[in-house]
Each structure stands twice: as structure tokens, then as C-alpha cells.
């Protein structure tokens, strides 16, 4: 099979294991492409892509934009802070106006869960979810799993621990779906106020103690405390959080193995992870960024063939 089973990338939940492996295989080719002297290929030169960012983003937006440019597509960018949304326009009106400009693909980030599903149901363009509220962030999960595969050779049968604010994290949910589909075991770690109450229904166990979790895992994916999504207090203070759940050199030295350190960014150094750990050889944080461009190129390439011209 060399085609994805889906027309849009709305979440990892809708993908099959074969889809994920096809994206990885295609990304392997793009890694080679983006390491050539000339990094651009003309593949998508007659495709127009709109990047609609209704929520702030640096990394994902730049990564998508670079991936689109490397594939020679035309792009238009939209960010809500400078748009007519401020004048009261609805989401579907904004999107329809952009689609009317003959846009083939839409990359959308939105603070509300389900926004990309809503757009996909109402327009004909191919839709890629670049993060919807606390729901899913599929390309991040793909690049995380891809980075694990490249580092450890295989995702199957590996133990992956997600530490931190799982409750508000779309990265955590997409990661859980993706890693489980590839045969890994996922557990979460953090204060119980930041762990979704019914997380066990996803087949995910909660480990309360960070050291127990680190001793169990091969890879730890550290999440940021999302203060902007918290309107009630889930933790007493950041300092206390950092003392109990901050990953630092001391706790890593106290366990008997070398585990791989990941972080989807943005990193709050000194809170969820210490500076020396982020910059250590165990950390693959910057590999994640490079892999992100290749994974997004692969997703764009594979989905562009679904465009109805």
C-alpha cells in the first residue's frame, strides 16, 4: 500500500499502523532531500497551501512553512491576531473566504478541540490539523515516534513515559495513540490533578513517582506546564512542581540506565527539565525539530495526492 487511508490528517486516532509506517518511510526519503546541497524539490509546485493559525505557534508554524517551501508549494499565512476575526467574523466564514482563493490544502491550528474536524466537514480542501485545543496534534506525535524509531531502531515493545501536564496536552493524547499503534507501552507521570481521570481507559497507567517512572521507561517525553490553559490552580507552585516532577541530572544519575530525553517544546528550562539535561547527549530535542520538517513534508506529499482538481 502506498497511499494513506485518510483524506485529511485530523488526528492519529484515524490512522492505521500502515499509514504511520508509510509516513515514516516517506520521511526517510525527505531526510535525504533536506540534507542535500539544494534542499528543494519541485513536487508540489502547482499546489497552494493556507496556514491558518488561530493560536500562537513558533515551531510548528515554521516547520510547516519550511516543509511547504521545500516542496515548492505556494503558501499563504494567516494568524488570528492580525485578522478580521477581531472584527467578529466566524470561523467558517474566514475559512471559506480563504478557500475561495483556490487553496488546495489547509493547515489549521485552533484553540478549540474539533476545529479541524469542523473545517474538514465543511470544505473540499485537504485539511491538516496542526493542533486543536487539548485534543490532538498529529504531526507532533508522528515526529516524536519517528525520532524514537530513529534513535532506538524500533518503537515496538519500548516503554515510553510522558511526564507533566497530560490533562491540557494535545501532544500527550496524540503520542499515546501513535505509540500504542506502533506497539509501544505508554505510561504517564505527574501530579494527579494534571492527569485525566479516565486515562486508564486508553490503556495507560499513571505512575505518581517520577523516579519509579524513569526506572521503568526507555524514553521520557517531558511536557510543559501549560499555564495559559489553566484557569484554576492545579499545582500549588511551579517550584513545588519542579521539585517533584522536574527531570534533572541528579534523578537521572540515581537510576541505572541511560534513557532518551524528549521534549516537544517550548521548553521552560529549570521547571519541567533542567538545562544540563536538555543539552546532554541523552537529549534528542533538536533531532525532533529536524525530523519535524521531514515528517511534515511526508504528510503534505502523501495527502497532496488526495486533492480533487
Amino acid at each position: 500500500m502506498n497511499r494513506l487511508t485518510v483524506k485529511n490528517l485530523l488526528g492519529i486516532k484515524q490512522l492505521t499502523e500502515q499509514d504511520i509506517n508509510l509516513i515514516f518511510k516517506t520521511a526517510d526519503n525527505f531526510i535525504k532531500i533536506i540534507n542535500k546541497p539544494i534542499k528543494k524539490v519541485p513536487t508540489l509546485r502547482d499546489i497552494t497551501i493556507a496556514n491558518l493559525f488561530f493560536e500562537n505557534s513558533t515551531r510548528t508554524k515554521l516547520s510547516f512553512e519550511l516543509a511547504e517551501k521545500r516542496l515548492s508549494s505556494d503558501i499563504i499565512n494567516f494568524s488570528s491576531s492580525t485578522s478580521s476575526l477581531q472584527k467578529g467574523e466566524s470561523l467558517i466564514d474566514t475559512v471559506n473566504n480563504i478557500i475561495a482563493m483556490k487553496v488546495d490544502m489547509v493547515v489549521i491550528r485552533h484553540p478549540n478541540a474539533g476545529a479541524s474536524d469542523f473545517i474538514a466537514k465543511n470544505v473540499n480542501s485537504v485539511v491538516i490539523n496542526a493542533g486543536d485545543g487539548s485534543h490532538e496534534h498529529p504531526t507532533q506525535a508522528l515526529l516524536d515516534a519517528y525520532s524514537i524509531r530513529n534513535k532506538l531502531g524500533l518503537v515496538e515493545n519500548k516503554n515510553i513515559l510522558i511526564v507533566g501536564d497530560v490533562l491540557h496536552s494535545r501532544v500527550a493524547l496524540s503520542n499515546i495513540f501513535c505509540l500504542q499503534k506502533l506497539g509501544a507501552t505508554v505510561k504517564v507521570c505527574g501530579p494527579s490533578t494534571l492527569i485525566p481521570r479516565h486515562i486508564h481507559t486508553l490503556g495507560v497507567e499513571h505512575i505518581a513517582d517520577l523516579k519509579d517512572g524513569l526506572e521503568w521507561c526507555d524514553v521520557v517525553n517531558i511536557l510543559r506546564i501549560q499555564l495559559e490553559r489553566q484557569n484554576v490552580k492545579y499545582i500549588p507552585t511551579l517550584r513545588e512542581y519542579s521539585m517533584y516532577y522536574g527531570v534533572n541530572r541528579e534523578i537521572l544519575n540515581s537510576i541505572n540506565k541511560k534513557i532518551v530525553i524528549m521534549h516537544p517544546g517550548p521548553i521552560n528550562r529549570g521547571i519541567e527539565v533542567s538545562s544540563d539535561v536538555v543539552d546532554s547527549k541523552q537529549s534528542i530535542v533538536l533531532d525532533q525539530v529536524e525530523n519535524g520538517v521531514a515528517i511534515r513534508m511526508a504528510v503534505l506529499y502523501l495527502l497532496a495526492s488526495k486533492i480533487q482538481k
Binding site: N2, R3, T26, N29, K32, I33, K36, V41, P42, T43, L44, D46, I47, L71, Y301, L302, A304, S305, I307, K309
Partner: peptide, 24 residues
């Protein structure tokens, strides 16, 4: 040399081209 991404028939074929190994 793999030429999949440089072909001029992207989107004009029934099947998508599967890229091969590039070794240069």
C-alpha cells in the same frame, strides 16, 4: 538517484509514486 519528487506527473497518476533509496 531517486527521481520520484522531481517527476512532472504528480497528481496526474492513479497511484502515488513510492520513492526509492537515494545514495549520492
Amino acid at each position: 538517484l531517486d527521481i520520484s519528487f522531481f517527476r512532472d506527473d504528480f497528481g496526474r497518476r492513479e497511484t502515488i509514486i513510492s520513492p526509492d533509496k537515494l545514495d549520492m
